[in-house]
Amino acid sequence: MAEHDIRMKLHLLCAGLFAEPEAEHLEHVLRPLAAELGQTDGPWQEGVRALPFPEGGRETAQLGLEYNRLFVLAKGHVPVQPYGGYWLDGKSTLYGPSLRTVERIMAAEGLEPAQASGLAPDHVVCELELMAHLASQGGKKAPLEKTLLFNHLARWTPDFCRAVMENTREEFYCAAAKLLEETVARDEARLAAHMGRTAGDADEEEQA
């Protein structure tokens, strides 16, 4: 696989792992994707292979409950808010100023969250899918990738992943968080090496 192809698939896989678990999606999309990546040599191999996909309807339902408890609504407050803006805008607001960055990239690509998803553009799933979309274009969208990564994903997913690992009772989400954490970290190192990284650069693009 070409490098950009692998990156695209990794982000797609991560996005899928943090979407609401549905048997269909898990079986026919995520599992094959993970299998493919697991057979490709690379630093991601271990993390992908470690993903404990649910076996059977009961385990999937169990996972669904955990998903709702973690990210949607629980007895206590939502333990892990899956929105970038929550982590970037001071934890007291959603749809805050940081959302503009993602919306601008989406607009440039002619994308927006699916109507039925009800998800904000900075939901972890949306951001990761956007990253996959950008990566799939083989470096042509490198500046946008860089903006999305350095202004968003790399700034909040580490906290998000830590929160998932601390709060979840399911091995699956622990492994998913670890994979996401590593994927973003590798992306960060890669983009930094390729293009040189300063916060200022990213900001300029953001403003442009």
């Binding site: 609401e20 669904g64 408890r69 949607v72 206590g76 407050h77 929550y86």
Partner: peptide
């Protein structure tokens, strides 16, 4: 913009008031 806002239709899963929900 409250992060605590109700965001999705939810179905109660456990006991009433136990706080288990499903989108």
């Amino acid at each position: 913009y409250d992060p605590d806002r109700l965001k999705f239709p939810l179905l109660r899963m456990g006991e009433r008031g136990a706080g288990k929900w499903k989108r």
